[in-house]
């Protein structure tokens, strides 16, 4: 921070350059790369909101996929039943997420870490159960189709438009998270994470701040779920397995707990990882012979990477990044 304060010009220039590159990327790439970019950005929004809850407020959740599903189904159902436009559905998704967050934040007032993680599992099962009921009752067994949203009379479709939109939303979420973390609320969260009893003794309203973390994080997550529904053009319960929750937990571990930059790195890594393994395996001789083993190898490798980071690099990618940065840049940092 001190470096940034001393050299505001450099920092602004860097940020501007970063923004420009990110904005211009769509002009230079293929639709496929844009699709990957969009997937990464969606994962970023989800990972940032989970980081807020777990990495900053210290509340563990295994119900992340359930919240994403809740947002996606809110959008799907509103589009299907009321052909609602996106400026109704997306806020509705965020509100649904916030309400669920409030409901499932309540156990956090009594429960700690592991027990809390378990109660968030219940959230997942309940949301998926309700979603499945809706799909079955309405006869939508292959999922709910969602038409692309319309903005000023234009259909929002295709990689470029979505890339820009998701980039803007991801940036907004990043900024919101950054401001929250630096605010009084963020400091209260840090105190609660460090020691709840001490935080209470210091006069911090523990219950209120915990619930706030759940509400904000869940609202962002459900928003990401709603965006997913629009981007993919459909919603179905199969897209939100427990494994997805684990992937998000892995993102914040691999990225590095307690760092927003870490959440972004983790989202990037976990999203692109399977493609990397696939590419690595396909360079082996007789690649098609192993094709059947691809998924299993991918799965196993993902488990290994998770274990690797937990055992050998608890600081995550952001820790590696900080260590590898040139000494000159590090010098100004506290």
């Amino acid at each position: 921070m001190s470096e940034a304060a001393r050299r505001p010009l450099l920092r602004t220039a860097l940020l501007a350059a970063a923004g420009l590159v990110l904005l211009l990327l769509p002009l230079a790439t293929t639709p496929l790369l844009l699709d990957l970019g969009c997937q990464v950005l969606l994962a970023c929004i989800g990972a940032l909101s989970l980081m807020l809850l777990t990495g900053f407020a210290g509340q563990v959740s295994l119900g992340h996929a359930g919240l994403l599903a809740a947002g996606a189904f809110t959008v799907g159902i509103l589009v299907k039943e009321a052909t609602a436009p996106f400026w109704v559905t997306l806020p509705a998704a965020a509100i649904a997420g916030a309400l669920l967050g409030l409901l499932f934040g309540l156990p956090s007032l009594r429960l700690r870490a592991l027990y809390l993680a378990v109660s968030s599992l219940a959230l997942h099962f309940i949301v998926i159960y309700l979603g499945g009921e809706y799909e079955t009752l309405r006869g939508l067994s292959t999922g709910i189709m969602v038409d692309p949203p319309r903005l000023f009379g234009h259909e929002l479709y295709g990689g470029r438009a979505w890339y820009i939109l998701l980039l803007v939303v991801a940036m907004a979420v990043l900024l919101a998270c950054r401001n929250l973390v630096r605010s009084r609320t963020g400091r209260a969260w840090a105190a609660i994470r460090a020691h709840e009893t001490v935080a209470a003794a210091l006069g911090i309203a523990v219950a209120r701040h915990k619930l706030l973390a759940f509400v904000i994080s869940s609202a962002f997550t459900a928003l990401a779920g709603g965006l997913f529904a629009y981007y993919r053009g459909f919603v179905s319960i199969e897209a939100f397995s427990l494994y997805l929750s684990i992937q998000y937990v892995a993102m914040i571990i691999i990225g590095g707990m307690g760092s927003l930059g870490g959440a972004i790195l983790g989202a990037l890594f976990v999203t692109l990882f399977p493609y990397g393994i696939e590419a690595a395996l396909s360079t082996l001789p007789h690649a098609d012979r192993y094709a059947g083993a691809m998924f299993a190898s991918n799965y196993a490798a993902f488990g290994l990477v998770m274990i690797f980071f937990l055992v050998f690099e608890p600081q995550g990618l952001i820790g590696l990044w900080r260590r590898w940065r040139p000494a000159s840049a590090k010098a100004g940092r506290p």
Binding site: L22, G37, G261, L268, L272, G276, I318
Partner: peptide, 25 residues
Amino acid sequence: MGNNGENVMQKSILSSLAVCALLVA
């Protein structure tokens, strides 16, 4: 921590996109 988020994002997206270009051809 948070303030180098954009930085990290920029560099990592760039490098990973380059990797992807090779991967998904």
